[in-house]
Design a protein around this nucleic acid. Structure first.
Length: 532
RNA sequence: GCGCCCAUCGUCUAUCGGUCAGGACACGUGGUUUUCAUCCACGUAAGCGGGGUUCGACUCCCCGUGGGCGCGCCA
């Protein structure tokens, strides 16, 4: 069977990187297998779903190159199908109607099957006994078993679990005598015609059954049925609930593998029963570890950029974010790190997905962005750098493209983000560049500072060609003639023409600026450095 | 509280019982540039603790510790 996976976000706000990472893993898995990657918009939460949020999802996916197959399925269009599924479950006896508190409108509740053994993955794990608080009655009815656990302080703690969790249930009192045997009343209870209340119980004895499945990332996972409760699938106001819609849509979309965050593992046990009750084969599941912050807590807005849009705004490349996120919880198994989407897809397998959480390291992301930046075609780099210069007023339409290109070439090795351009190379484009006062103090506002600049002005004014090599030769000659250290002149020149203490190699920088700009800038700086 | 999951350098990771525990980011040192940076080379740095199993354990099992997730008529 050909692979079909899906990304199923609920459009309730911005797209979190944890979510988009799940989309990336699904995309990688699908592309690796030559299968289909589907998009489903789970927009049934009328209160919180917005068209803007849908656009945010679509925009983020397009930006990252997460191409999907087929048209997106909007879950809100499936309402009738969901209700039909609920009706079917009701008819089959896999669900019942129930009003909380016994009054008002009834919700539809899915019943974990009493004959659970017919569901693949359910196993009997043996006899189990649990202590219950004698002050609270044990109530056994169609909706399950209610009892009170005993807390460490001896207080009763209410529990409500599904009937299916308690096969062969016997309620015992402190004297070991059986006060109630489920087998005696099971038919009436299942039919909702009887509810048993047992006072003064001390223990519950029953045959424990567990639901198990093979998670493609975490291995065999299991959950005792007495840890599960029946759950609502259609609210009393008639709206289908997440569990129903999610599973029903996976059936209609023919999803073969569900790859999602491991905050969903508990849902998986429920969904396994739902798939079976709906007459479908359950898909394979793979649960991804979460991404966390430096404190090991779920990564959030407070940890810096958390939404796809934040990274885009800060100037990160989609290739870099994609690459970085793919490496959070997965590795190709060799030492490769900087990879293209195609390389990632070729190398991707669920086998290599880790099961432990990964911390986001923005520093490494920035490094990776620089690596990708350097691999982009010149035309794209030009556009990216120009955009940042435009945004900061350093560049306007009609200015010299050839000059821009030379600047970018000089800066290419040192910037990690396009958005570094304005701050690091803005001085190339304005004669009104600011001076870093600390650097001025260190390099120019000192004895001999002015003399150095004068020497440079004289040496460079006479140059027939304004090239890096000629500039270097002239600077060194001037240093020797004035009995100065060349490095003093180098630093003085840098701050004079750029206002900064850091930048590209000096001679290249000067050549790019050109004779006229350099001359003007020396004059401008000279005016600020009076004779001692 | 109960259930489930997780645990290798500061961080991302390799290792699928036998390795000097490898790579990358970051950091440090040195070299190149009589240049801040880049670049290059080198270096510091790890198997949570305790028990087993085994000739041998980072790797398998158990207990502990720490962390995460779940326990809605939210998704």
């Amino acid at each position: 069977m050909s692979v079909r996976v899906r990304f199923a976000p609920s459009p309730t706000g911005q797209v979190h990187i944890g979510n988009i990472r799940a989309a990336i893993f699904n995309w990688l898995f699908a592309r690796h297998a030559g299968g289909q990657f589907l998009l489903r918009i789970e927009d049934t939460d009328r209160e919180r779903s917005t068209p803007e949020a849908v656009q945010a999802v679509l925009g983020a996916m397009e930006w990252l190159g997460l191409t999907f197959d087929d048209v997106p399925l909007y879950q809100s269009t499936q309402r009738e199908a969901h209700l039909a599924a609920a009706a079917r479950l009701l008819e089959q006896g896999d669900a019942y109607r129930f009003a909380k508190g016994g009054e008002g409108a009834e919700a539809t509740v899915f019943r974990l099957p009493w004959d659970a053994e017919r569901v693949p993955g359910v196993v009997v794990t043996g006899t189990c006994e649990i202590s219950v608080h004698p002050d609270e009655p044990v109530i056994i009815g169609r909706e399950g078993v209610r009892y009170a656990q005993i807390s460490s302080k001896g207080k009763p703690v209410a529990e409500h679990k599904c009937l299916a969790g308690f096969r062969d249930l016997e309620v015992l009192d402190a004297g070991e005598s059986v006060r109630f045997r489920l087998a005696d009343k099971i038919d009436e209870i299942l039919a909702g015609r009887h509810t048993e209340s047992v006072a003064g119980a001390a223990r519950l004895r029953f045959t424990r059954r567990s639901i198990t499945y093979q998670d493609q990332v975490k291995g065999v996972l299991a959950k005792p049925l007495d840890g599960l409760a029946d759950f609502v699938i259609v609210r009393s106001d008639g709206h289908p609930v997440f569990h129903l819609g999610n599973v029903a849509d996976d059936v209609t979309q023919g999803v073969t593998h569900i790859i999602r965050g491991d905050d969903h593992v508990e849902n998986t046990y429920r969904h396994l029963f739902l798939f079976h009750a709906l007459g479908a084969t359950a898909p394979q599941y793979a649960h991804l570890p979460m991404i966390v912050n430096a404190q090991g807590k779920p990564y959030s807005k407070r940890d810096g950029a958390a939404y796809v849009g934040d990274f885009r705004e800060k100037g990160y490349l989609p290739e870099a974010l994609f690459n970085y996120l793919a490496l959070c919880g997965w590795s190709p198994g060799d030492d490769r790190e900087v990879m293209t989407r195609a390389e990632l897809a070729a190398a991707f397998t669920l086998e290599k997905v880790l099961s432990s959480p990964a911390q986001v390291d923005l520093t490494k992301l920035a490094w990776m962005n620089g690596e990708h930046l350097r691999r982009r075609p010149v035309s794209e780099r030009l556009a990216g750098c120009r955009a940042d210069l435009v945004a900061h007023g350093f560049w306007q339409e009609g200015m010299d493209e050839g000059y821009l290109l030379k600047v970018i070439d000089a800066m290419a090795e040192r910037i990690k983000l396009y958005t570094d351009m304005a701050a690091q190379a803005g001085f190339f484009f304005t004669e009104d560049y600011p001076y870093d006062e600390k650097v001025m103090q260190k390099r120019l506002r000192k004895p001999g500072g002015r003399e150095g600049l004068l020497a440079l002005r004289e040496a460079w004014a006479a140059l027939p060609v304004f090239t890096a090599a000629a500039l270097e030769e002239a600077l060194k000659a001037a240093a020797a003639a004035h009995n100065l250290n060349p490095s003093d002149l180098i630093h003085a020149a840098r701050v004079a023409v750029s206002g900064m203490g850091v930048g590209p190699g000096l001679y290249v920088m000067l050549e790019v600026l050109g004779a006229e700009r350099v001359r003007r800038r020396l004059e401008r700086t000279l005016a600020l450095v009076p004779a001692a």
